[in-house]
Structures are given as C-alpha cells and as structure tokens.
Computed example of a mutant assay.
Amino acid sequence: MSEDQKIVVFQSGSEEYAFPIEHVMSIEKVTTINPIPHLPAYVRGMVDIRNELVPVLDFEQILYGSPAKVEDARIIVIQTEGLFSFGVMVKEAKEIIDILKDQIKQVSLLAYSQTKYFTGIVHLEDRLITFVDADILVQSLGGMKEIEAYLEETVKV
C-alpha cells in the first residue's frame, strides 16, 4: 500500500512546482521586502514575518533569470533541516493536494547538475508538477551559506 503525501503546489513562470507540506511554515502575501545591497540577484531582500527575519528568494529569477512581478505574488516560507527559514517568492500559491508517494516519478533530466533540487515529477491527469527539495535548493545556490551564517549569528545576539 502506498503512503499519502501532502504537497503545496505553486506556480512560477507557466509551470507548476511543489514543496512537501512538512517543510512549509506559511504562505504570505508579499509586503515590504527590504533589499540588501550586494546580495545575489535571486535574493530579493529580507522580510519580517512574525518577528523573524527571513531572506526571500525569487524563484523566477533562479529558474528563468528574470525577476518575478511583486503584485499578486506570494511568499512560501520554508523550514530547512538545518532550522533555517527562508521565503520563496512565487507567482501563485495554488493549492494543497494529496498524492501517493508512488505517483512521484524520477526523470533522468532531473540529474542535471544545475537543477539538483528537482527531485521528481508528478503526473496528474493533464498536469505535470515538479517537486522541489528545499534543502538542496538552498545548498545549491551561491551565497546562501553566508546568509545562513549571518542569520544564525543574529539569532544568538
């Protein structure tokens, strides 16, 4: 018997992606993002979410090289295994759905070194949803280790 898994489906560009729900802390409307100079282009800046400073990554910038439009965008706040929180700005947070774990298919293109954070694809009727591993995403982006270290230091103060 296959096990159910809940996923948060979101849109970036014209494609659908998903994070496993156990990594999603909240979904927020985009408010004021405070830009920080000299950060990588994919980091939009920092936001204060429930008295916690959270870096915001622009998923469209990461995937397509162009910044997302802020109006109507959402921030999906993710908790990584290292207890590091970050926001992912997406075009639209669409829904939370249940899938069976055996519906997640591995595709050889997912092994490409530039997109290691894509860990599988779910094919549902007329939809393809690409799985994103938040931990691998953070580890694969240049500059994120420094941002994580900075945030850990500010928490200690």
Rank of each mutant, 00 (worst) to 15 (best):
M1F: 09
S2N: 12
S2P: 09
E3G: 01
K6R: 05
V8G: 01
V8M: 11
V8S: 10
V8W: 02
V9S: 05
S14P: 07
Y17Q: 11
F19D: 06
I21W: 03
M25D: 10
I27E: 02
E28I: 06
E28R: 14
E28S: 14
E28A: 09
T31A: 10
I33R: 03
I33Y: 06
N34I: 12
I36M: 09
I36F: 02
I36A: 11
H38C: 08
P40S: 07
A41D: 14
A41R: 14
R50M: 06
R50L: 11
P55K: 00
F59M: 15
F59N: 12
E60R: 15
Q61K: 14
I62V: 14
I62N: 01
K69Y: 07
E71M: 14
D72E: 13
A73M: 12
Q79I: 09
E81I: 07
G82E: 15
L83N: 15
F86H: 08
V88K: 11
V88R: 09
V88H: 03
V88Y: 06
E92H: 15
K94T: 07
E95M: 06
I96G: 00
I97V: 13
I99N: 00
L100W: 03
L100I: 00
I104R: 03
K105R: 15
S108H: 12
A111W: 07
S113D: 13
K116C: 02
K116D: 03
K116I: 04
F118R: 00
F118G: 01
I121P: 00
V122P: 00
V122F: 08
H123G: 01
L124D: 10
E125R: 14
R127V: 03
A134M: 01
L137K: 05
V138N: 08
Q139E: 13
S140K: 00
S140N: 01
M144Q: 07
K145Y: 00
E148Y: 02
Y150V: 15
Y150K: 15
Y150E: 11
L151Q: 10
L151C: 01
E153K: 15
